[in-house]
Structures are given as structure tokens and as C-alpha cells.
């Protein structure tokens, strides 16, 4: 199996506190992976490192077929290389319409000049409509994103991620604040997406992860504690200790 992303021996500390400790992780080009772990296990910092927000003190992050190092790239370059991220709290551009949000996310040239002279092509508008259908916001296309409900904002953000057409999707707690039906829909979307690309889901909700039915990586104190199927990791004594406390 080829790997899309390989993280090896990464460590980072803040003011002496080791948030990530010699962490290694890899994922293939079309794979769904869930990451769980207690608070402070380093899940968010792990995503920060991949997306370039935080620079690790040591270790390597290798990307794609060409084995490029992500560490020397800026956030924008990493995003352009095909890493999409969805934040824990829905972050959409609230002062702009759903259409504008989606258009901005569509994978088109990102340079200032190209953007300045950009006119939405028919294909782009069609893709936006398609995405809006997919995330159930067709009727809200021209409303401002700020007026959407919490769940709808989550959807919009997922839609923006899909519009980016990334090779790797990092999703932080996608199901938070959703109704059971919406969760069901989200699960389908993620599973569907993972057929063509890598998807990493960080989630607390075990039930949700069970529905995903994928490999699970357990983080604890900045390193990988266990990896395998959900049943495998939940029967691991270390994991039980960490979650239930000793």
C-alpha cells in the first residue's frame, strides 16, 4: 500500500510542555481513519502540524508521491497541495453568502491576479449547485452564511472542504451539535469521500466512529497508544486505563 502522508518522529513542546512526543503516523491515498484520545492528547496540535500552523521541534512530515516535506511549506501551500481542514467550531465566512463561500473554496488558481480577473465559469456554478444539493443548502445559496443554523454551518464547511477537492481531509469533530439524521448524512458523506481520498476524523463520539467502521488511532500524551479496528483498540488494556482512569 502506498502512503499519502507519513509523519515520523515528530515532537513539539510549548514552554516545556510536550504536546506531541515522538509521534509517527501514516495514511494511504484512499483511507478513512479515526483518531480518538482524551483531552490534551495532542489531537488538535497534530492537525496543526500537518496543516503548517505549528512547526514541530523535530521529526519529518512527508507528503504524496513526490515525497515532499510539508515542513518547509506555508499553510497556503499545504492547502494547495491538497490538505483540507475542518475546524472543531464551524468557521465559515459569516458576512458572505453560501455561494460566495463555496466559490472561494472551489479549486481554482489561488493567486491574487488570477482571482482578481476571475469570472465564475458555467462548470464552476454547476459544481457549486451540485455541492449545495449534497449538503442540503440549495435553498440557502444566496443567504449569508451568518444566518445559517449551527448544523447548517457545519454542512457548509464540509461542503467547502469538498469543493477544495483535497487529497487529504482532516475533520475535527464533524458531528458535534448535529441531530441523529444529520449525523447519518455526515457519516455517508465521509465514507463516500474516503473512497477517493484520505480522510482523518477526530471524534469523541464512539458511536459515530463505530458507524464509520474504519481503523482507529488512539493518541495519548502526544504519542500513538494503539492502532487498529475499534473493537481491537477498545479491548486494549492501555486504552481502557487511559479512558477510565486508574
Amino acid at each position: 500500500m502506498t502512503t499519502l502522508l507519513e509523519v515520523s518522529g515528530v515532537s513539539v513542546s510549548f514552554d516545556g510542555f510536550r504536546a506531541i512526543n515522538n509521534l509517527s503516523f501514516q495514511i494511504g491515498p484512499a483511507e478513512l481513519r479515526a483518531i480518538i484520545g482524551p483531552n490534551g492528547a495532542g489531537k488538535t496540535t497534530f492537525m496543526d502540524i500537518i496543516t503548517g500552523k505549528t512547526r514541530p521541534d523535530e521529526g519529518r512530515v512527508i507528503w504524496g508521491d513526490l515525497s515532499r516535506s510539508l515542513l518547509s511549506m506555508s499553510e497556503a501551500q499545504i492547502a494547495q497541495a491538497g490538505v483540507g481542514r475542518k475546524f472543531q467550531k464551524p468557521t465559515v465566512f459569516e458576512d458572505q453568502s453560501v455561494e460566495e463561500n463555496l466559490l472561494m473554496a472551489l479549486s481554482n488558481p489561488r493567486g491574487p491576479l488570477a482571482v482578481l480577473f476571475y469570472k465564475p465559469a458555467k462548470a464552476d456554478l454547476a459544481r457549486v449547485a451540485e455541492l449545495a444539493d449534497e449538503i442540503g443548502l440549495r435553498a440557502q445559496l444566496f443567504r449569508k452564511a451568518g444566518e445559517l443554523s449551527h448544523g447548517q454551518k457545519q454542512w457548509l464547511e464540509i461542503g467547502m472542504l469538498l469543493a477544495q477537492d483535497p487529497k487529504l481531509l482532516l475533520v475535527d469533530e464533524p458531528a458535534a451539535g448535529m441531530t441523529p439524521e444529520e449525523r447519518e448524512h455526515t457519516t455517508q458523506l465521509l465514507v463516500e469521500a474516503a473512497k477517493t481520498r484520505a480522510v482523518v476524523v477526530v471524534e469523541h463520539d464512539m458511536e459515530f466512529i463505530r458507524r464509520l467502521g474504519c481503523r482507529v488511532t488512539v493518541l495519548h500524551e502526544g504519542s500513538v497508544l494503539a492502532e487498529g479496528s475499534l473493537d481491537h483498540v477498545t479491548s486494549n488494556q492501555d486504552v481502557i486505563d487511559v479512558y477510565l482512569g486508574r
Binding site: 499553510e75 492547502a79 475546524f87 459569516e94 472561494m104
Partner: peptide, 14 residues
Amino acid sequence: RDNEQRVRFLGYAV
């Protein structure tokens, strides 16, 4: 203006 970081993660060189 509203969320610089988010724009960056969309791949724009802010």
C-alpha cells in the same frame, strides 16, 4: 478581514 486563518487553510496566500 473576518478570519485570516481560515482563508489561509483554503489555500490562499493571505
